[in-house]
Design a protein around this nucleic acid. Sequence first.
DNA 1: ATGGCCGCTATGAGCGGA
Length: 252
Amino acid sequence: MKLATWNINSIRARTDRLIGWLAAEQPDILCLQETKVEDAQFPTAALEKAGYHTAIYGQKSYNGVAIASRAPITDVQRGLSDGVADDEARLIAGTTLGVRVVCVYVPNGGDLTSDKFPYKLAWYRRLRAFCERHAGDLVVAGDYNVTADDKDVCDPVKWAGHIHCSEPERAALAEVLGLPLVDVFRRLHPEGGVYSWWDYRGVAFFKNQGLRIDHILATPALAERATACTIDRNARKGQDASDHAPVIATFT
DNA sequence: ATGGCCGCTATGAGCGGA
């Protein structure tokens, strides 16, 4: 089974690119973030034509998550479902191909002094609780907006203490990993220096000045079945690319 | 030290992103 996650940064701006990528890579399951579209405008028909069922949770302009799968998706949950008033479309979960898949778009957080920052940390605590409520195997994939450690950072000195690299954010991610969940890419590529996001500005991508903030986490038994995990840099190349590249894991 | 780019909007400047 091939499972991917991709922050598409507007699915309307990149529908053709997405369909082409699906045809080339043929993942069984794809988690999408930042679709930036209300459900009525989501390109459900184009994905269906490409051979994918979809479960979607969108909103106008911002956020928006979706799961696409070659098989039907059941038991869909939209949002963290914890009773907290929160209308930001950042989590969708569903069961497909025998796997419980949680697709997440963790808040950016702005900067450490922003009022968005405590929301980010609280969201991590709520995500941990969401995953803890689920008994069996899970894949939790998406844009975590946090680097696990400096191996995920192009320039650790420049980024030290900044958003995506600060101690409280890394501690929040570590709490989720402590459930336990395994970072599948890191398990197979412990050396670091491979990124999933590059700034649009300047020569950041050309010079590989990026961060690894998109992660596929899995419960340990499932993570043991991962035989490969790659980040598709090619999808970040050329005109009209998202600023994120897809992360792809293959499970036996 | 700052901004540089991109997508969005009852657009054409401002917000959010990372």
